[in-house]
Amino acid sequence: MKKIPICEKSNLTLKEAAAYSVIGINKLRDLTSDRNCRFVLWVGNKRLIKRRLFDQFIEQEYSI
Protein backbone atom coordinates (compact mmCIF):
# COMPACT_ATOMS: atom_id res chain seq x y z
CA MET A 1 0.00 0.00 0.00
CA LYS A 2 1.34 3.40 -1.00
CA LYS A 3 1.95 5.80 1.89
CA ILE A 4 0.54 9.28 1.34
CA PRO A 5 2.45 12.23 2.87
CA ILE A 6 0.57 14.13 5.59
CA CYS A 7 0.66 17.36 3.57
CA GLU A 8 -1.39 15.66 0.83
CA LYS A 9 -4.05 14.15 3.10
CA SER A 10 -7.35 15.93 3.56
CA ASN A 11 -8.11 14.27 6.93
CA LEU A 12 -5.64 13.38 9.67
CA THR A 13 -5.83 11.06 12.65
CA LEU A 14 -5.11 12.58 16.05
CA LYS A 15 -1.62 11.09 15.99
CA GLU A 16 -0.90 12.55 12.52
CA ALA A 17 -2.37 15.93 13.50
CA ALA A 18 -0.20 16.01 16.63
CA ALA A 19 2.92 15.32 14.56
CA TYR A 20 1.84 17.84 11.91
CA SER A 21 1.04 20.70 14.30
CA VAL A 22 3.25 19.93 17.34
CA ILE A 23 0.12 20.15 19.51
CA GLY A 24 -0.34 17.28 21.96
CA ILE A 25 -2.94 14.58 21.41
CA ASN A 26 -4.71 15.41 24.69
CA LYS A 27 -5.04 19.08 23.70
CA LEU A 28 -6.36 18.05 20.28
CA ARG A 29 -8.93 15.82 22.03
CA ASP A 30 -10.01 18.80 24.15
CA LEU A 31 -10.33 21.07 21.12
CA THR A 32 -12.26 18.52 19.05
CA SER A 33 -14.64 17.54 21.88
CA ASP A 34 -16.43 20.88 21.54
CA ARG A 35 -19.69 20.55 19.59
CA ASN A 36 -18.91 23.71 17.60
CA CYS A 37 -15.50 22.51 16.43
CA ARG A 38 -15.43 23.04 12.65
CA PHE A 39 -12.33 20.97 11.88
CA VAL A 40 -13.37 17.60 13.34
CA LEU A 41 -14.99 14.81 11.34
CA TRP A 42 -16.53 11.96 13.30
CA VAL A 43 -16.54 8.53 11.66
CA GLY A 44 -18.33 6.44 14.25
CA ASN A 45 -16.22 6.88 17.39
CA LYS A 46 -13.11 7.84 15.42
CA ARG A 47 -12.29 11.52 15.08
CA LEU A 48 -10.44 12.84 12.09
CA ILE A 49 -9.02 16.34 11.73
CA LYS A 50 -9.91 18.25 8.56
CA ARG A 51 -6.44 19.51 7.68
CA ARG A 52 -7.36 22.65 5.71
CA LEU A 53 -9.82 23.91 8.34
CA PHE A 54 -7.34 22.99 11.08
CA ASP A 55 -4.67 25.09 9.34
CA GLN A 56 -7.09 28.04 9.19
CA PHE A 57 -7.94 27.59 12.88
CA ILE A 58 -4.26 27.62 13.86
CA GLU A 59 -3.57 30.74 11.78
CA GLN A 60 -6.38 32.66 13.51
CA GLU A 61 -5.53 31.66 17.09
CA TYR A 62 -3.16 33.58 19.32
CA SER A 63 -2.77 30.83 21.90
CA ILE A 64 -4.21 27.40 22.51
Rank of each mutant, 00 (worst) to 15 (best):
M1H: 02
K2I: 07
K2V: 11
K3H: 06
I4T: 13
I4E: 14
P5C: 05
P5L: 03
P5K: 10
P5S: 01
I6Q: 11
C7P: 01
C7N: 12
C7L: 08
C7T: 11
E8L: 12
E8N: 13
K9W: 01
K9Y: 03
S10N: 03
N11C: 11
N11V: 13
L12M: 07
L12T: 00
L12P: 00
L12V: 06
L12F: 01
T13A: 04
T13K: 02
T13Q: 07
T13G: 09
T13S: 15
L14G: 13
K15L: 14
K15W: 09
K15E: 15
K15F: 11
A17P: 06
A18D: 10
A18M: 05
A18I: 01
A18E: 08
A18C: 12
Y20A: 02
Y20N: 02
Y20P: 12
S21M: 07
S21R: 01
V22D: 12
V22H: 04
V22A: 10
V22Y: 00
I23D: 11
I23Q: 09
I23G: 12
I23K: 00
G24C: 14
I25M: 10
I25T: 11
I25L: 11
I25D: 13
N26C: 11
N26A: 13
K27R: 15
K27C: 14
K27P: 09
K27W: 10
L28C: 10
R29L: 15
R29G: 12
R29M: 14
D30E: 15
L31F: 07
T32H: 00
T32W: 01
S33T: 13
S33V: 10
D34Y: 13
D34M: 13
D34S: 14
D34W: 04
D34A: 15
D34I: 05
D34K: 05
N36H: 05
C37E: 05
C37S: 04
C37G: 12
F39Y: 04
V40T: 09
V40I: 03
L41D: 10
L41I: 09
L41T: 00
W42L: 06
W42E: 14
W42K: 00
W42S: 06
V43Q: 15
V43W: 05
V43C: 08
G44D: 09
G44I: 03
K46F: 08
K46E: 15
R47S: 04
R47H: 08
R47I: 03
L48I: 11
L48W: 05
L48V: 06
I49L: 02
K50Q: 09
K50N: 10
K50W: 03
R51S: 02
R51M: 04
R51W: 01
R52Y: 00
R52M: 06
R52V: 07
R52E: 12
L53C: 00
D55W: 01
Q56G: 05
F57W: 06
F57Y: 09
F57K: 06
I58Y: 07
I58H: 02
I58A: 07
I58F: 02
E59K: 06
E59S: 10
Q60Y: 00
Q60A: 09
Q60H: 07
E61A: 11
E61V: 14
Y62K: 06
Y62F: 05
S63E: 09
S63M: 06
I64F: 14
I64M: 12
